[in-house]
Amino acid sequence: MKRMLLGRLAALVPTVLLASFVVFMLIQLAPGDPSITLAGENATAERIEEIRRSLGLDRSLIEQYLTWLSHAVRGDLGKSIITQESIAAAIGRTLPITLQLVFGALVVAIVFGVIAGVASARRADTATDAVIASVSSAGAAMPSFWLGLVLVSIFALGLDWLPATGFVSLAADPVRALRHLVLPSVALGAVGAAEIARQLRGVLIEILASDYIRTLRAKGLSESRIVWIHALRGAAVPLVTIIGLQVSRLLGATVVVEAVFGIQGIGTLVVSAANNRDYYVVEGVVVVMALIVILVNFAVDVSYRISDPRIR
């Protein structure tokens, strides 16, 4: 087991390298370059060329990539070309904010998704099932920025129950942090909840019709114990897979929701960096994101082995 895990971890290294290389090349494909931004308006071509040279942008892409990589492996992601802030520091400042938001959205997705999925599987093909199915189709189809705007106009501007914008760290002030977290988490997590509900319904219906569930009924277990302990445990592998996919999706979708709720997270950082062609900030953020996604997938993989004794 331990050996298998180490092997899997080692296999992640080439994946991260490949991701960092592809992203590095892709950003350069976008037209424009940071020296134009830095040179300001009405700059001469010579001035722009001078800045390009000073930034090392005149060298070959491979050369630039290898230089970046040699620093990155030592934990040095460089400095923002535009703001001169250390990129590691900028990520350190914004990543926890985004992770808190993603975590909130994940809680919303799992809690609502599992409850709705279990309810509709237990009452398959009834009115309850149909209502849940149509609500979750609507949830899956709704863009999160639009849902965010609707939530803000109802619960913040209309009823004044919750703040419309802003962010507070959970560590600093849990109560205020939760009040700020509710609306963006719901906006971001709704799609995931719908997805989890629909997938879980299908998996559970199949499990609830299986022979071993009949045995559990025959030995006199209560229906709720059968569903929540045995059937849900049987659904763990597909459930964890969907949740893992949701984490990747949420990390991407957070950009839009951060904009709606005025949250200065990593999405905001990467969007403004991309607009300014601040190559190394984009590169740093994307590599960190890729690393998180890869680690989540790894954790999902490990959890399969823990939850199913047959593949241990």
Binding site: Y212, R214, A218, H230, R233, G234
Partner: peptide
């Protein structure tokens, strides 16, 4: 009363037990 006053065993012992417990 199921499992207490009456019990049942099934044809397929392969699939009749919960594989995860």
């Amino acid at each position: 009363v199921r499992g207490r006053d009456m019990g049942m065993i099934f044809q397929e012992p392969m699939s009749a037990l919960d594989p995860l417990f």
